[in-house]
Design a protein around this nucleic acid. Structure first.
Lengths: 337, 337
DNA sequence: TACGTGACTGGAAGCGCTTCCAGTTTCCGT
DNA sequence: ACGGAAACTGGAAGCGCTTCCAGTCACGTA
C-alpha cells in the first residue's frame, strides 16, 4: 500500500492541549455548544486550523450512538432487477435530499440469502441510523426484522397485503384512472388493459384504477391480459387481446415497456395508432418518447419518490411524527392517444 | 417514533458476566482468536445465544480502526449522468463482489460542490476503509484529496491525462480496433467513425483504436465526426459524415446509442444496412438488440468492471500489492455488419 | 458588602469493543 | 518428580469523542 504518512491525524486531545483548554471545551467549540467564551473559541479554532484537525467519524458515532448513515435496501429475488432505471432515479432523488444533510447513503442489494442476512446484521448491529426499503414482497422477512431491530424505516411503494406504518408511493390507481378516463374521453368504449403482475401492489393498483374508471363511466372492463412489465410481456399480452377482442379500440398498458411491445404488435397487425387503437402507457420513461408514435403515458416522478422517502426518514430519525405520502401522477399527452 | 423497547442491546460485558468469564475472553471467542479453552468457548457461545448478543459495529470500528465500509464515488458535473444504466451495472458487480465479505457499500454522488465536499470530508474523517472512483475528470481535485487522505483508492476507467496507480478499465482501444478490423475484414475500405467526446479517455481511446486499425490495414481514416455518446449526437454526426463523405461504406460508432442514431439517419437517407453501409457500435447495451437491424457491437462486461474494482480495493485494504487491470472486450455479431 | 444568578470551565465517566501483557495453569519430556 | 514451554486467563489500557456534573468566576442586585 501507498499508505500515507503513518503519522495519524491529530485528535481532539491534541487540539485541546495546543489551545490550552480542556478537551470538553474543545468539543463544545466543535459542536457549537453554548457556554464557550470568546477567547476559548478563538484559541480552539486556531488550533484546529493549524493542525488541520477533523473529528473522527467513528469515535463520534460511538459516543453519540448515531452513525450518520442511512441505508437504501433493495430486496428482491432477481439480482438484475436493480438494473431497472427506476432505481437509479430513486437514488438520484435520495442523494439530492441527503445532500443538504450530513448523512451518507449505504446501498444494500439484498437479493440472495447472503445479501439479506448481511442487511439483517447491518440493522441489528446498529450500523445505520435508518433504512429505506424497496421492492420487497409482502412476506419478506425483512419487514419483521426491521420492526424488531427498532430501526426507523420507510418503505418505497407498498408490499402487497401489508401496509407499512410509513411509506411513500406513487398514486398508481389514480394514474391508471387518469389514463383510462382519457381514453374514454376520446370516445373509446372498448378499452382493454395489459396489466403488470397482479401479484404485486403496483400491478394490482394500476389494474384497479383501470376498472374503477371503466365502471365509473358505465362501461364494463373489456378485456384484460397479464404482462410482466417488460416489452416482450406486453407484446405477448397484446397478441392475446387482439385475438380475443378483435374489436378493441383502446389499450391501457400498465407500463411504458409493455406499451412499447403492444405498439409493435399493433403495427404488425395493421392497426393504426391512434386512429384505430389508442394506447396509453405508464411511467413516462425515456422509451415513451421514442416509440412510434410517441407514447401518451402517465408520468410519475421517481426522483421525488426518493426525495420524499428520505425526508420522511430524516424526520423519523429526528423523532418527529410523520404521515405516509402518496405522490401525484399526471398524464403526458403524446401521439398514441 | 415506534422505537422498539428502550432496553438496549446486550453488551460484551454482559455476555462475559453471564458466561462467567472476562470480557477479553468473550472477545476472543467472538473473533475466533486462538488460546480459548473449550469450556470458555462453550460458555460464551451459550451466553451469546441466550442473550441474542450481536457486537456493535461502531464500537468495533473504533477499536479496530476499520469501518467495514467502502465507498463508490461518482464524481461528475452532471447529476443526471448517474441515470446511465452503466452505473447500475457497476453497482451490481460491486455488490456481488462485496457479498462474499463483511463490507458494505456507501454510494456517493458527488456532482455538486456540496457533494464533493461531503465526499472529501467522508474520506478525511476516516469514514470509509477505501474508495472506488468513477467518471472523474483528470483535473478533479478528488484525485489529490484521495491521495492526501491516504485512503486506499481504485479508479474505474482512467481520467484523461492522468494514470492512477490502481485502476480497472475496459480495453476501449482494443475493442475499437476489433470493431474496425471487422469492418475492414468485410471488405469495407471507406470506414468512417463517430467518436465520443475526444476530451474523455473513453472517447479518445476508442478513436485511437479505430485509427490504429485503419492504419495497420494500410487505409487512411476516412472521416470522423465527434458525437457525445448520445443517440441524438450520433444522428447529427451521421448527417455530417454523409454530407462530407457520401461514398462511405461503413461506420464505427463509439457507443451503441450513437450507433442507433446513425442507423436512423442512414435509413432516412435511403442507405440500406448492412448492404450499403455496415455499422458497428460499442457497449452492447440493451438497445443494441432492438435497433433495426440489430446492432453488431463490441461487448464489455460492466459488472466485471465493478467486480474487479472491488477485488482490487479489498486487496489494497488488506495491504496486498496489486496491479491495474484492463478488461477484455469482444465483438458481438448481429445484423448491422 | 453579601448573596444569588448565570456563564464558563475541566475532570471524569462513559460509548462498546480490541489487544497487550503479565500472571496462572496445564501438559510434556526427562 | 521436576523444569520449561505452551495454552489459557483477566486486568487494564486504549480507540477518539460526547456529556454530565461539580466547581469557579464575574456580575448585578438588595
Amino acid at each position: 500500500m501507498a499508505a500515507a504518512a503513518p503519522r495519524r491525524q491529530p485528535t481532539l486531545d491534541q487540539v485541546a492541549e495546543r489551545a490550552g483548554v480542556s478537551r470538553s471545551a474543545a468539543s463544545r467549540v466543535i459542536n457549537k455548544a453554548p457556554h464557550v467564551s470568546r477567547a476559548t473559541r478563538d484559541a480552539v479554532e486556531r488550533a484546529i486550523k493549524e493542525m488541520g484537525y477533523l473529528p473522527d467519524r467513528t469515535a463520534r458515532a460511538l459516543a453519540t450512538r448515531q452513525t450518520g448513515i442511512v441505508a437504501l435496501a433493495v430486496s428482491h429475488d432477481d439480482p438484475e432487477l436493480f438494473a431497472d432505471p427506476f432505481f437509479a432515479q430513486v437514488i438520484v432523488g435520495v442523494s439530492a435530499a441527503l445532500e443538504e444533510t450530513d448523512l451518507h447513503l449505504l446501498l444494500c442489494l439484498a437479493s440472495s440469502g447472503r445479501g439479506r442476512s448481511r442487511l439483517t446484521n447491518l440493522l441489528q448491529t446498529r450500523g445505520v441510523d435508518g433504512v429505506m426499503l424497496m421492492a420487497l414482497r409482502g412476506d419478506d422477512p425483512l419487514t419483521h426484522i426491521v420492526r424488531q431491530a427498532g430501526v426507523p424505516a420507510v418503505y418505497g411503494g407498498r408490499p402487497l397485503h401489508f401496509e407499512p406504518q410509513w411509506y411513500v408511493d406513487s398514486d398508481n390507481a389514480g394514474g391508471a384512472r387518469l389514463a383510462t378516463e382519457h381514453l374514454i374521453g376520446l370516445g373509446r368504449t372498448r378499452v382493454v388493459t395489459i396489466t403488470g403482475q397482479i401479484c404485486t401492489e403496483v400491478g394490482e393498483a394500476r389494474y384497479r384504477g383501470y376498472r374503477e374508471a371503466m365502471i365509473m363511466a358505465g362501461l364494463t372492463p373489456h378485456g384484460t391480459a397479464e404482462g410482466d412489465f417488460t416489452e416482450a410481456g406486453g407484446a405477448a399480452a397484446m397478441r392475446t387481446l387482439l385475438d380475443r377482442h378483435p374489436d378493441l379500440d383502446a389499450v391501457f398498458a400498465a407500463s411504458d415497456n409493455m406499451a412499447a411491445g403492444a405498439l409493435r404488435v399493433l403495427a404488425e397487425a395493421g392497426r393504426s395508432v391512434p386512429a384505430d387503437v389508442a394506447v396509453v402507457g405508464f411511467d413516462d420513461l425515456q422509451i415513451a418518447e421514442r416509440t412510434e408514435p410517441p407514447l401518451t403515458t402517465v408520468h410519475q416522478s421517481i426522483q421525488d419518490l426518493g426525495k420524499e422517502m428520505t425526508r420522511m426518514l430524516l424526520g423519523l430519525i429526528a423523532g418527529q411524527e410523520r404521515s405516509s405520502i402518496i405522490l401525484p401522477t399526471r398524464l403526458v399527452q403524446r401521439g398514441s392517444a
